[in-house]
């Protein structure tokens, strides 16, 4: 049995997120070192401010400034920070109810005293990031905060020590969108059947698999006959020659695809290899693009790098008759 292949797969994109008015105000506020909440119809203040009341479903938008100080409502000690998390030294994840808010915000707490210095009820304040752009990460983290009289601070409007700047939620040059880069790393394995197929390509052989039930030959094999729902395993060498069943002429270079280094125009064809019961896909070369036709007989041109053929070229044989490949179209 062939050993399965494995290779890294990185899924990464900088997503561009538009915010809408409430989220725009909140994130712009963070840039300006102001924390905003949103008031619900029944007078609760939600921080972070959401666009829709989770209880009544009503759209809400009345912004209210709250204090940059608050109380930990629950916490968890993260001794091994992971990629992308707010701090790269051990910290506590915390839900913090800011003074003036009725709900809690998730963030990190930098607690140099370690886990034994943190408890539910710990008083904390925002530590602002030096560079702020209008993002949740403008709060670098929270830090412990020794307040002389915590009870007074529960209501920031009563004149406690917490500083409110009197923001109405309107700012110059508001942030309307964020870029949210996201990267996930995977180790991809194509499984048994495809591993065997790819290994045979390295020997410049095309090896499909036959369904034990319907006897059709699948190239590339996918481990299952998709119409019978049973495993394929009998290996069958096919090709290397085949017939172009249909094609298109590609005139544009699509962004984010792997064809960037191929000069346009080029022909992208469906090719039924001799002995296979369905067509695979490949590029046609060695012939002007406007002379490619259905029925053209072709053979693979292997790449120096190994793996899949770089492209297919005409064999010089007479074209296949339509009747011979129309079922493979």
């Amino acid at each position: 049995m062939t050993e399965v292949l494995k290779a890294p797969l990185v899924v990464e994109f900088p997503f561009t997120r538009s915010l809408g008015p409430v989220q725009s105000a909140f994130l712009t506020g963070l840039r300006e070192r102001v924390v905003l909440g949103v008031r619900t119809g029944d007078g609760r203040v939600l921080v972070p401010p959401v666009e829709y009341d989770p209880v009544t479903s009503e759209e809400i938008g009345e912004l209210v400034e709250v204090a940059p100080t608050g109380t930990v409502t629950t916490w968890a000690w993260n001794h091994e920070p992971r990629r992308g998390q707010p701090l790269d030294t051990p910290f506590a994840w915390v839900l913090v109810r800011l003074d003036g808010a009725d709900t809690a915000l998730l963030h990190a707490l930098d607690a140099p005293g370690g886990p034994d210095s943190v408890r539910t009820g710990t008083r904390v304040r925002v530590r602002w990031a030096e560079d702020r752009s209008g993002a949740i990460t403008d709060i670098a983290c929270f830090e412990p905060y020794e307040s002389p009289n915590p009870h007074e601070l529960r209501d920031p409007y009563s004149g406690g020590a917490a500083a409110l700047v009197g923001s109405d939620g309107r700012f110059e040059d508001p942030v309307t969108g964020i870029v949210a880069p996201a990267r996930l790393d995977y180790t991809y394995s194509p499984g048994r059947a495809q591993s065997a197929y790819i290994r045979s390509l390295a020997d410049r052989r095309v090896v499909g698999e036959r369904c034990p039930s319907c006897r059709k030959v699948y190239v590339p094999p996918r481990g299952a006959c998709p119409t019978c729902g049973v495993a394929t395993s009998e290996q069958v060498e096919v090709g290397p020659r085949g017939t172009v069943t249909t094609y298109c002429i590609v005139n544009i270079k699509a962004t984010h695809t792997a064809n960037l280094d191929i000069e346009v125009p080029y022909v992208y064809a469906h090719i039924a290899l001799d002995g296979a019961d369905l067509a695979l896909h490949g590029r046609i070369g060695g012939i002007p693009y406007d002379q490619v036709r259905m029925g053209l007989r072709v053979e693979p041109v292997w790449s120096e790098a190994g793996g899949h053929p770089d492209h297919y070229r005409p064999t010089g044989e007479p074209d296949a008759d339509y009747e011979t490949y129309k079922e493979l179209l």
Partner: peptide, 11 residues
């Protein structure tokens, strides 16, 4: 939440 929470990568 892709705006307020996912950027912090809380696992």
């Amino acid at each position: 939440d892709p705006y307020y929470v996912a950027p912090l990568w809380p696992d």
